[in-house]
């Protein structure tokens, strides 16, 4: 589904990614771990299409298409979804209106007909239940005045609504209490199927108790320095990152 080959990127003069290679197939969950500043969030942002970075080398294909050539909205249309580390507050744009616009723009991109109000509301009701998000939050302006946990939950709610084929969770667990973490993880797990894939970018092993990865990669100084199964996460928890440097 996703193939990253020798991806190198910088921001300003600062080289951040130094040749990432990664292949993700449908049905898989990959965890990307690593210390602060290793390039985890940069990788997530580049996949979603953030423009702050300059790609100096390498390529990324998604379902056979050159992902780097696509605008962020086109990537969403193709099925890429980024759960933001710091979801932005947008006063004046209601969550509901935002989601309806997003869904219908994605459907338009795919040549599907727009979802009418009745079906949209039905879908929303269903997903509200799934991610256990407060109905009142959904009615409010996008993330405005939400707590950290509410913002993260809203990201997972959007993910549930948009049903992406590749979900990238960028530090979705950081700052969450255990109940919120469980709810977020349940949401992710119940959305998982054979057709989609998930990248979990995280700093802490704890999340991986709830979202079980098929592969764990350790990112250090813009490179994947070690890959393994879920047991690698436990090893990292125990030994820290120093032994890999």
């Amino acid at each position: 589904m996703l193939k990253i080959t020798n991806l190198q990127a910088k921001i300003g003069d600062k080289q951040i990614l130094n040749g990432i290679n990664l292949e993700i197939k449908a049905g898989e969950v990959h965890a990307i771990m690593g210390p602060n500043g290793s390039g985890k969030s940069t990788l997530a942002s580049i996949l979603a299409g953030r423009e702050d970075y300059e790609i100096t080398e390498g390529e990324v294909t998604f379902k056979g298409k050159d992902l780097l050539e696509l605008a962020p909205e086109e990537r969403a249309g193709e099925g890429v979804f980024l759960a933001f580390q710091y979801p932005v507050e947008i006063p004046g744009v209601s969550n509901t209106n935002f989601l309806r616009t997003a869904i219908n723009e994605i459907r338009k991109y795919r040549g599907q007909e727009a979802l009418d109000a009745v079906h949209f509301l039905k879908l929303m009701k269903e997903k509200v239940k799934l991610v256990e998000i407060d109905q009142a939050l959904v009615q409010r302006s996008l993330n405005e005045g939400f707590s950290g946990g509410e913002k993260k939950r809203n990201e997972i709610f959007q993910m549930a609504m948009l049903e992406p084929s590749l979900a990238i969770l960028d530090e979705t667990d950081s700052g969450l209490d255990i109940d919120a973490l469980r709810i977020v993880a349940n949401g992710v797990n119940s959305l998982k199927n054979k057709e989609n894939a998930t990248i979990v970018v995280t700093h802490y092993q704890r999340l991986l108790d709830y979202i079980i990865p098929d592969f764990v990669h350790v990112l250090y100084k813009g490179r994947i320095v070690k890959s393994g199964g879920k047991e690698l996460a436990l090893e990292l928890e125990e030994k820290g990152y120093d032994w890999l440097k």
């Binding site: 909205e73 249309g77 979801p87 947008i90 935002f98």
Partner: peptide, 27 residues
């Protein structure tokens, strides 16, 4: 940042800009 956020959810840039401007004048 809000522009990128909306785009990342599939909303084309021009439409996202319009949504944000409407939000700005909304109050």
């Amino acid at each position: 940042e809000p522009l990128f956020y909306l785009q990342s959810r599939g909303i084309p840039k021009e439409k996202a800009r319009k949504m944000l401007l409407f939000a700005f004048v909304g109050d």
